[in-house]
Simulated scan of single mutants.
Amino acid sequence: MGLFQEFRQFAIKGNAVDIGVGVVLGAAFSGFIDSLVKDIILPPIGVLYSKINFQDLYISLSGMTYPSLEKAKEAGAATINYGLFITASVRFIIILFTVFLVVRQINRWKKPHQHPLDSMTKKECPYCCMPIPTKAIVCPNCSSTIKKQENKRKAGPTWRIM
């Protein structure tokens, strides 16, 4: 499975431990990632695009123009701050990807410590072909009743019709 597919599954199907780790790591990395985005990543991108400061990208809803977002706020103008949104989005993606990498590594560390008999105590459901516990009577995947296969021979001759 590729890295991108694992990332997508993590983002969609997180469990409580993954979310807890994410909250803690997100809080711990918040200041670091914020500085990384504002001071390292976005300034070179802004230089490439005609010396744009992403934090000064806004739309004034009053119709007036101001030299910066700070001046618009001082004047009390209502603004849509899409530059700050871009900054926050980049920051969020970096934090989410970092948390994913940490949780992915934690899950790799967990695999060797699984019980060695777990893989040997499985059988295949004859109806849906999914692995189920050996002692299962009802398949948890397809809800089919599993008949216990016994190797008893019937008494008397067996007839075949051809």
Rank of each mutant, 00 (worst) to 15 (best):
T87H: 04
I45S: 02
K71H: 14
P131Y: 05
S143Y: 09
S62Y: 09
S50T: 03
L61A: 00
P112W: 10
K51E: 08
Y49C: 10
P133V: 12
K110P: 09
S50L: 02
P112Y: 08
L101I: 15
Q114R: 08
V90T: 14
S60P: 01
Y49G: 02
K122G: 04
F54T: 00
P140R: 08
C129K: 12
A77M: 07
G63F: 05
L57H: 02
M64Y: 10
Y82W: 10
D56V: 01
Q114H: 09
N81K: 13
L61Q: 02
P112T: 03
K73P: 09
S60C: 03
V103M: 03
A78I: 12
L84W: 06
D118A: 15
D56F: 01
P140N: 09
Y49T: 09
L57S: 03
S143C: 05
L69A: 11
K51H: 10
W109M: 13
P44H: 00
N53L: 08
I94G: 07
M120H: 06
F92H: 14
G83E: 10
T145W: 00
Y49E: 01
V103N: 08
L69T: 09
N141F: 11
I94Q: 12
K51V: 01
Q114M: 09
T87I: 11
M130L: 05
D118R: 15
G83R: 08
Q105F: 15
R108I: 13
N53D: 14
S119I: 05
Y127K: 03
D56S: 01
R104M: 05
A72W: 04
P133T: 14
Q105W: 15
Q55K: 14
F100N: 11
F85A: 15
L48E: 01
I86K: 02
I59R: 03
P67C: 12
V90S: 11
F85Q: 13
W109A: 14
L117T: 09
Y49W: 11
W109D: 06
S119C: 09
P133Y: 15
Y66D: 02
C128P: 03
G63Y: 02
K135M: 06
V47T: 15
I52S: 00
H113Q: 08
C125D: 02
T98I: 07
A72G: 08
T87A: 14
L96D: 08
I45M: 04
E74T: 12
I93N: 12
S119W: 08
I59C: 03
A136S: 12
L57A: 06
K73W: 09
P140Q: 08
Y58D: 01
A72M: 07
T79L: 13
V103T: 10
S143K: 14
I86S: 07
Y127L: 05
Y58C: 01
A75F: 05
T98M: 15
G63K: 04
K110H: 14
I59H: 06
Y66R: 03
Q114W: 03
I137N: 13
I80A: 15
G83H: 10
A78C: 05
I132H: 02
K51R: 07
V103H: 03
A72I: 04
P140C: 08
I137C: 08
W109Y: 13
N141E: 06
K135D: 11
V102W: 07
Y58W: 04
L117R: 12
S68D: 13
S62F: 06
I45N: 00
V102T: 04
S119V: 07
I132A: 02
F97Y: 15
S60Y: 00
K135Q: 13
L48Y: 05
A75K: 09
Y127I: 03
A77H: 12
T87M: 11
